[in-house]
Design a protein around this nucleic acid. Sequence first.
DNA 1: TAAGTTGTAGGAACCGTTTCCAGAACCCTG
DNA 2: CAGGGTTCTGGAAACGGTTCCTACAACTTA
Lengths: 342, 342
Amino acid sequence: MTPGQRQDGRIGIRQVAERAGVAVSSVSRVLSGHPNVSKPMRRRVLLAVADLGYEPDMLAQGLRRGATMTVGFVVGDISNPLLAEIALGAETSLGKRGYSMLLANSQNDPRLDARHISLFRQRRVDGLLLSLADETSEATLQALRLVLRPSVVIDREIDPSIGASAVLSDHAVAIGAAVDDLVGAGHRRIALVTGPSTVRPSRVRADALQASVRRHRGVRAVTRAGQFSAEHGAVATTQLLDDRDPPTALIAGSNQVLVGVLRTLKRRAMSIPEDVSVVTCDDVPLAELMAPGFATIHRDSTQLGREAAALLLRRVEGGGPETRTLPVKYRRGKSVGPPSTD
Amino acid sequence: MTPGQRQDGRIGIRQVAERAGVAVSSVSRVLSGHPNVSKPMRRRVLLAVADLGYEPDMLAQGLRRGATMTVGFVVGDISNPLLAEIALGAETSLGKRGYSMLLANSQNDPRLDARHISLFRQRRVDGLLLSLADETSEATLQALRLVLRPSVVIDREIDPSIGASAVLSDHAVAIGAAVDDLVGAGHRRIALVTGPSTVRPSRVRADALQASVRRHRGVRAVTRAGQFSAEHGAVATTQLLDDRDPPTALIAGSNQVLVGVLRTLKRRAMSIPEDVSVVTCDDVPLAELMAPGFATIHRDSTQLGREAAALLLRRVEGGGPETRTLPVKYRRGKSVGPPSTD
DNA sequence: TAAGTTGTAGGAACCGTTTCCAGAACCCTG
DNA sequence: CAGGGTTCTGGAAACGGTTCCTACAACTTA
């Protein structure tokens, strides 16, 4: 039996070397584009590769090179269209550069965040994309400190000692524009229903709401922070409307929250914008089309994903941590009108 | 310098062995739960592992064991909520069994399907989950033949020579139920607007529609196959309504198609169900909540993902290819009423 | 022509783990 | 207590590549 044989049919670099009549190291050099390799050598090797249909084993490459061309994406909930689009944008960008993406769903549970991060470490990913749960636990931070790999957090602020890059959304200016529009339409009492006050998008929006309101005389704002869920949206809306001096305009902090808001309005037979004006954040394309003309605070989530990938690759290639803030746009719509006059 | 040292800080099985004062093979045995290992040995090793915070390198494990505990998911469009939920279900199931999921988006392009499949092969995934593009190219089949790894196709029929498992949805009975409901409401002319006639869900639904209609006297059905897109939905609806004898009930084959249908109806100022009854397939939770009470042909996509994962793992563990058909339910709703009488 | 460069190729060590193999220690029985 | 069978352990060879190191040959240059 000739030396380079294998029992199973798989062909490796040794088989290629034997076929081409050269050393394995030469095959490796040809395939990885090493400079010092003669023309005839390159030809022979490539011929053998084509004949045998050889494809390198990325596992072995990763082990030896110390780089796996893999990044891990920890995502709170991939069935959330916003996050799915981020994943889409990121995967596409990464794929173009030869990277593959490992996806792990944490179901918005900080413990799963931490577990997945260290699992990715064991898998030796080259970098981490993080769309973390609403709460960042100490365990998550600890896991992140141990990975020793570049990471990019999405729409979160995280302990700088981690050294992570961040891609943020500029929620503030969009909220400002929305408030201006609402105030221009005559509203004097505006409510924001959003997720946990600890999480960046909620906090930034709440702060921006207060700041924007202060620019206008006689306008008051109230924020109901809770969860990014339909339940919270419904309950908060009910409470707001039951107030002695209820808001005439509502801003929903997410799709799910909007669902709750709409449910409550429907139950009360209130119509938009006659009885109450509504603006929503992070609309999904589908919803936009189903309820056309809704006023939205919108960001390009696919671009967000692409940007996150770009930031990560820069770090993988040796760059330092950066923070990039992407624009968010307010889009006027038919769901905003003058306040009801009763 | 002691032998087991390393320049970088990373600790491997050698460091653990040295610390515990045993052989590396023993450490490996303890960690992989090999039966023949004494109690004191286990104690010493586990102590060293804990002291050093050792975590195995899954890359090296994969290389040596020949199993990477990784599966690849090739998906047409992760930003499609239906597919995102499938991914969610699959990832959760796989994660519980220690598997990680590589995600690749093919953008509904058969060439990318093929490329990603062979990329996954190079990454030595243990199995493949396939939600393929609308068209299955010869290149895709060829790539699939070369992978030599178990695969599960989702809602597609594929050349049996591939030996893939399949998880299908029983669209037929749901269409039957929908037709019964529509006919019961008085409809005599029903149209289905759906994707390419080559792709399984479209074909099965079209066939089921014809079969169901045949059960009723004087009822006629027409199918407009095209793309799973809003454009096709809009165009097809326009053409259908312009017909001399237009349908009084429409079934939309997907979310995107529904968007087009609704757009056209809105443009024509037609209301549901007064002017036309509408049933939609594969509603997303969000849409359901935004347009509550819509009649839908619904399947549990998370369960679909879980089932696909289960099927794949059975194959990975040595089982033969299976096909499993999951139920699809028709849910009556307010978007169905008696046909208009003009 | 001898010595120094440079380009090219092969051999072998290595990445971090598993597993085969062989030997040592132990236990049990005749 | 010798012999045979277990159970346990350590050493070394894989897994499939990459890369360092060395050697050889072919040119330059002195």
